[in-house]
Structure formats: structure tokens, C-alpha cells
Computed example of a mutant assay.
Amino acid sequence: MVTPDTAADDSDRERGQLVLTAAIGIGLVIVGLVVVINTVLVSENLSTSESLESSDEVTKFSTSAQRNTRSLVLRLNHWQRNQTGPQIGRNVRHNVSNYSRALGESYAETGISVVNLSYNNDSSTWGTRIVQTNDSWITDAANDSDWTLFESNDHANARRFVFNLNTSHTSTDQFNVTFDNGTETVEIGIQRKRESIAVSSERSLGGDVQDVMCDPSGNRVLIDLMTGEAFTGDCEFNGVLNRTDPERTLEPPYTVSVADGEHGFGKFSVVTNSSLDTSSGPFGPCDPQQADDLGVSRTNPHDPCRSPIVWRANITTTYQSTSIDYWQQHNVSVYP
């Protein structure tokens, strides 16, 4: 008779239980690790998603702030004829501050971000607006029909050269505006034909001469020589910024001159990046007090004059939330 070895059996059972217990323990550890890892991954994904969403919000805020600042400064530049640099600077700072306050209130309603926008006058770039605000012949203050608005040695880049012509008094004889960068010229001829304004555009280095008819609205025709279009949208021509072939845009700096200006009648405004000296040249400052301070004659309301404009506005944008602290300076081109 064989007697069972109970001690050995007990030992085997204990080892089996230990192995089972260890296996269960390892399994629980693995399950726990999987849960922890998944939790970390989910948390990271949520965090990344929130960061990307916040980043998109910052981009939208920054883009919108720059676009609306440009529109605001553009309006203030052309708000009135008799403005000095300090006046424009104060007006821009005040209006940007009001816009920033309204913007901040709209973002505060969401409860997740704080935004701010400020205008830096000393870091902004200034230019000049040459303007004739009353109907008159397209001549200079000395009544010369052939004259120069500004020259290339002023490093001049022009934008928004707008004529507001009176079709009743503009002559059927042509007057011309020429842009010359020393290598190539764009010559734009303007005259009345019946009740409309005929515009021709010709480049010195080839290309077809383009003739278009611009119909009046209320006895007026508004055309921009830079973009080559009427504000009513009824006519288009190749201006200095060539519409049909952007590669043929006339590159600045250039001299801008008028020939036979006595044939044109109306108002005009042109802006340039040059801060031209308002104490000399073919026209003086628009602001009467500034003319007195400089000891020059006051400008006749029917003559062209000069006033400063903000060419490039320097602004600081700030965006703060729980996940982002953003601060950036921008140079906003008012006349892109």
C-alpha cells in the first residue's frame, strides 16, 4: 500500500495558488497600466485639441484686428482736409482704443479669453496725401497746367490716386497723368466724350493702348488711376497696378506728373509713402494754422495741398486665455 505524500501535494497546491495569484496580479497591473496610458493619451489629445482651437482663435483675432484697424485708419486719414500729424495720431489712438474696448467686451462675454489692441504712433510710418477738395482745373497752386506732384528721388510709392471729375466742365481735349520710374512709364489720358469720360492707358515698353468709356453718375465720374477702375464699376483699364497682368505693375519709386491739366475739372486725391516737406514745393500744407506756423501762404481751397497720413500703422495685439498668452506687434499697411 502506497501512502500519499500529502506534504508534496500541499506544496504543489501552494505553488499553483502562488502562480495563479501572481498571474492575476500581473493581469491587474497590465489592465491598470492600460487604463492609465489611455487616460494620459486621451488627456493629451484633449489638451492638444484645446490648444489648436485656442490657436485658431488667436489667428482669427489677430487677422480681424489688423483688417479692422486698416479700415479705421484709412477713414481717419481721409476724414477731412485740414489735419496735422499730431491730430491724426490722436484720432487714430483714440479710435483704436475705443475699438479695443468694444472688442474686449465681446470676448469677455465668452468668459474664456481677454484681448487688447493698442496703436503705437511713434512706431508707425507716415506719408503724405495731396488733395484738391473743391472743383477746379487740374493745375498747381501757380495755375500751371504742366506740373509734378512728386518725384522718384522722394522714394515715392503712390496709392489711391482718385479723380472725381465734373463731366460738364471737363474738356473734350485730353489731359495726361504720367507715372515714370526711370525705366518705364504709364501714361493715362483723360477727356470728355459726349456725357462720359474717356480714359486711355499706354505703357512705354509695349502693350496695346487701351481706351474705355466711363459713364457718369450724377454728373460725376470717379476713377482710380492706380487700380484702373471706376468706383461705379462700369469701366476698367490698365492702371499703374496692372489688373490683367500683375507682373507688369509699374514698380516704384516713380515721378508723377500732369500735362495739360487745364483740360480737366474736378477734385482729386493721391497718397504717397513719402513724408514730403510741406513748407516748400508746388503746394503748401492744407491746415491754415500750420501754414502760418511755417510762415508760408495759406492754400486756396480750390488749390491742391498736402496733409500727413498714416501709411503703415504699428499696433500691438494681446490675447490671453487659460492655455495661451499671446503678444505681437504688427505693421499694418493702410494702402496695400
Score class of each variant (00 low, 15 high):
262 E>A: 06
251 E>Y: 02
316 T>Q: 14
6 T>H: 11
68 N>L: 05
334 V>C: 04
53 E>C: 00
302 H>V: 10
124 S>G: 01
120 N>K: 11
114 V>Q: 15
228 G>C: 05
269 S>P: 00
240 V>T: 04
148 T>N: 09
148 T>E: 02
92 V>Y: 08
295 G>P: 00
36 V>G: 01
67 R>I: 10
290 Q>P: 01
245 D>L: 03
274 S>C: 03
218 G>E: 03
16 G>T: 05
62 S>T: 14
177 V>R: 08
18 L>T: 08
302 H>Q: 15
26 I>W: 00
39 T>M: 11
247 E>V: 08
196 S>D: 15
182 G>C: 04
269 S>T: 07
190 I>W: 03
320 Q>Y: 06
270 V>W: 05
153 N>M: 00
311 W>D: 09
37 I>Y: 01
319 Y>K: 13
99 Y>S: 09
302 H>N: 12
317 T>L: 10
77 N>W: 09
327 W>G: 11
311 W>A: 02
254 Y>W: 09
106 S>P: 04
152 S>D: 15
195 E>I: 07
199 V>Q: 02
301 P>C: 06
295 G>E: 03
224 D>W: 12
198 A>W: 09
21 T>Q: 02
57 E>D: 15
317 T>W: 08
208 D>R: 13
246 P>C: 04
147 W>P: 04
95 N>K: 14
163 F>K: 08
104 G>S: 02
315 I>V: 11
18 L>W: 01
78 H>P: 00
149 L>M: 15
72 L>P: 13
107 Y>Q: 02
67 R>S: 13
332 V>S: 08
283 F>V: 02
137 W>S: 13
12 D>S: 02
82 N>Q: 12
150 F>W: 09
278 T>S: 14
121 N>H: 04
269 S>I: 11
323 S>C: 00
14 E>R: 05
145 S>Q: 12
324 I>K: 11
16 G>Q: 01
291 A>W: 05
93 R>Q: 13
58 V>D: 02
146 D>A: 12
13 R>Y: 13
198 A>C: 03
122 D>N: 07
74 L>T: 14
52 L>G: 12
141 A>P: 11
225 L>G: 06
256 V>P: 02
66 Q>D: 03
28 L>V: 15
95 N>R: 13
307 S>F: 06
107 Y>M: 04
122 D>C: 00
201 S>C: 01
41 L>H: 15
117 L>R: 09
10 D>P: 01
166 N>K: 04
311 W>S: 02
110 T>W: 15
243 R>H: 06
176 N>M: 07
240 V>M: 06
142 A>K: 09
314 N>Q: 14
203 R>F: 08
261 G>F: 09
123 S>K: 10
75 R>W: 02
73 V>L: 01
96 V>Q: 07
73 V>E: 11
248 R>Q: 12
204 S>F: 04
146 D>I: 01
2 V>T: 01
263 H>I: 06
111 G>K: 08
58 V>R: 13
134 N>S: 12
236 E>H: 12
188 I>A: 05
315 I>A: 06
205 L>E: 14
48 T>E: 14
296 V>G: 07
110 T>I: 10
22 A>P: 04
95 N>M: 07
118 S>T: 02
80 Q>W: 12
156 A>I: 00
245 D>T: 14
145 S>V: 12
170 T>I: 13
255 T>W: 09
